[in-house]
Design a protein around this nucleic acid. Structure first.
Lengths: 214, 214
DNA sequence: ATAATGACATACGATGCGTATGTCAATTAA
DNA sequence: TTAATTGACATACGCATCGTATGTCATTAT
């Protein structure tokens, strides 16, 4: 009678390990997370971990890959539902900041990840997010909305600014006020990308970011 | 006969520990640096380390404080010798990127530091660099060169962009070409800060950054 | 001269990682 | 149907490292 098929059990084990590690990494951090502890919390031992992921770093990679996939999916949804390209780009930046405000992402992806796995610009997953942003910038260039500039370069600078803004906001005493200042300054910088003619309107900063902090 | 005074010996011991740790952290990284090893390389033991710095993290703090002081000093020199405020600000940003290209700074200050000590915007030292940049932006605002924007917010965004640009450049296959693209995009973003009238000239990007990569 | 402080070294216990080995179920082959 | 093999996972071991507790010796204070 129906004991679950092998492949499913294995996938389940991997998922349990990733979930347990993600929780541990996200709360106490990578270095402080004991493999014995969080494998046990998943009802397993380190044996399973080494079998499936090679070592602790391998597991961190798997956790980050999972988080990154979620981030990419969220970004795509955001940029897809805007009614023009520029707005889509701005919304995507805002979504980026919002995600970087989440403690789990901040801890695992933005702090421990780079320390353990090296420069994030070398990760395949992180590059997916950048690529998504680059594509938008490429289209904006073709469209003539922004000045001629290397899309990937701009995407990396903008994401860097976003991430730091998020860290600043998240650790601020008054996150709401800080968020307003950061978003304002962020939009000023983004306007540097716009061509002179397009700049007159001074497009408004999206206000959603404040809701997430209310 | 002149055995050195007590205070000097102690300062020397501390300096030796910081230097040894700085070297170890900068090469193999914080996590891989064995306290037994690098204290021994300084002709001491962990006893001295725990006595002076409390623990491994305390020593990392001391190392980062030393590096940060050097960074701040370099930034002040750069911004002081420019002939106008805007140029001084742009030069300071460029110097920031150049420093972030140095492997020791990248490893200790930009990767291991945040992972071990938390968000850099909370470090007293890192805030010194930001404050220096903020002051310049404040003056630029008073002067009427840039649009009204919170100086600290702008400083943090700009430094974030700089740091990510640096990581991208440093890990690129063709750092020189990448550097050109990054600097161009960086200047485009900075122009967003300039008031419409000031923007006509499209001030040129300083080229010094390319020299450091040649 | 003696007491007290403090700069360091040594000794110890605990924890955590990686590997080597063992076990048992599930697939495959005969 | 049964025997052989694979592979998922647990257990056991050795090693390195960290933090603390304790010891020693020189300097400074009384």
């Amino acid at each position: 009678m129906g004991h679950k098929p092998r492949k499913e059990m294995i996938a389940e084990t991997r998922a349990k390990l990733v979930a347990a590690a993600r929780h541990a990494f996200g709360t106490v951090g990578y270095a402080e997370a004991s493999m014995d502890d969080f494998t046990a919390s998943a009802g397993l031992t380190r044996g399973a971990l080494y079998h499936h992921f090679g070592d602790k770093k391998g597991l961190l990679q798997a956790v980050i890959a999972e988080i990154d996939a979620e981030m990419l999916a969220r970004l795509k949804i955001v940029s897809a539902r805007a009614d023009n390209l520029w707005q889509g780009f701005v919304d995507e930046c805002t979504a980026y900041i919002e995600m970087a405000l989440e403690p789990e992402i901040q801890r695992i992806v933005l702090r421990d990840g780079p320390a353990v796995l090296g420069d994030p610009s070398q990760w395949p997953s992180q590059n997916e997010c950048i690529r998504s942003m680059s594509e938008n910038l490429q289209k904006l260039g073709d469209e003539g909305t922004i000045v001629a500039v290397d899309p990937e370069a701009a995407a990396r600078l903008v994401s860097g600014a976003s991430l730091h803004a998020a860290q600043w906001i998240a650790n601020s005493e008054d996150p709401e006020a800080t968020s307003k200042k950061a978003v304002k300054a962020f939009n000023v910088l983004l306007e540097g990308l716009l061509k002179q003619g397009s700049r007159i309107g001074r497009p408004q900063a999206p206000a959603e970011i404040d809701k997430s902090l209310a």
